[in-house]
């Protein structure tokens, strides 16, 4: 830069413009390359799919609405996500928030209990031998299979849905945490031993941070599963929530509403995953992926 300045003195116009034009072009090229690589492919693919969908579904006798038709049908819902006509008749924003609230309760419980159990199983061989077979069997039970038994236990739909989230999200959290705790490198443990850290210091300063990348990969799987489970559970329990909204729309044959709801579900699921990923990256200072 300083070089271009000294050169500029002798012939200001010509010299000054040359590098700036060059950097501008370079900058432009970089933006262009980003655009070409990151923006163009998804836009092209989505555009092509929408076009195909439009073509296939605008023929007479098509079973599903075409995108243009869908937009038409759901315009009210799209522009007005937070209306409230009482009962179940509330905007999509409220529906999603109701589902998110259930997920927040169930998932938070799963995080607390899951990390605690994971540390226990990771630290104690006895606990591992005792609990691991149980975990391995229970984690394969599909989330919805828990719903009847939790309805029987809680006698209410909302706690049952929360329990289903809890029981769905907890397994990957337990398993990943215990693997993380068990795999703490010998070197880190030696540091703790040489410094004579006590149990509490060892837990907070060595064990948790060392296991954090594993814990967060469990948390990330857990949030994804929670979101999968809540939509399914809500279809069965009714009330406000994106899952029951879909079921309701199906019963009213409002296919366009269903499509809109699926887009919402997908975007929210993606956002949840990205959020947990981001928190993980922050907390572990980039050691978690």
């Amino acid at each position: 830069m300083s070089e271009s300045k000294t050169l500029a003195v002798s012939s200001p116009v010509a010299r000054l413009q040359l590098p700036s034009a060059e950097t501008l072009a370079q900058h432009g090229r970089r933006v262009g390359r980003f655009f070409l690589r990151q923006i163009v492919p998804p836009v092209v693919v989505i555009g092509a799919l929408l076009l195909l969908w439009e073509v296939l579904c605008s023929r007479p006798g098509a079973m599903l609405p075409a995108p243009s038709q869908m937009l038409d049908d759901t315009w009210e819902l799209i522009v007005n996500p937070f209306y409230d006509y009482g009962g179940n008749d509330v905007g999509m924003g409220w529906q999603v928030l109701a589902s998110l609230e259930r997920v927040a309760y169930g998932y938070s419980l799963a995080v607390i209990v899951g990390v605690a159990l994971g540390v226990l199983v990771g630290k104690s061989t006895w606990a591992m031998r005792g609990l691991d077979p149980l975990f391995q069997v229970l984690r394969t039970v599909p989330p919805l299979a828990w719903l009847p038994i939790s309805l029987a236990a809680f006698q209410a739909s909302n706690p049952s849905a929360i329990f289903v989230i809890f029981i769905t999200a907890i397994w990957p959290i337990i398993i990943n945490t215990s693997v993380g705790v068990r795999n703490i490198p010998e070197d880190y443990r030696n540091v703790a031993r040489v410094l004579r850290l006590n149990g509490f210091e060892n837990f907070t300063k060595i064990m948790l941070p060392a296991a954090a990348p594993y814990v967060f990969s469990g948390l990330r799987i857990g949030i994804g599963l929670s979101w999968l489970a809540i939509v399914a559970a809500e279809m069965l329990i009714g009330g406000v929530g994106i899952g029951f909204f879909i079921w309701d729309a199906w019963n009213a044959s409002q296919i366009s509403d269903i499509v809109l709801a699926l887009i919402y579900v997908g975007l929210v699921g993606y956002a949840l995953d990205a959020l947990v990923g981001l928190v993980g990256k922050r907390v572990t200072r980039g050691t978690a992926s």
Partner: peptide, 20 residues
């Protein structure tokens, strides 16, 4: 008979804590 800070170690693979 136990490790302690009066005998500090430097390992070949540094063993720094990566989150600090």
């Amino acid at each position: 008979n136990a490790p302690g800070p009066d005998r500090s170690l430097v390992f070949q693979n540094h063993s720094l804590l990566p989150w600090l």
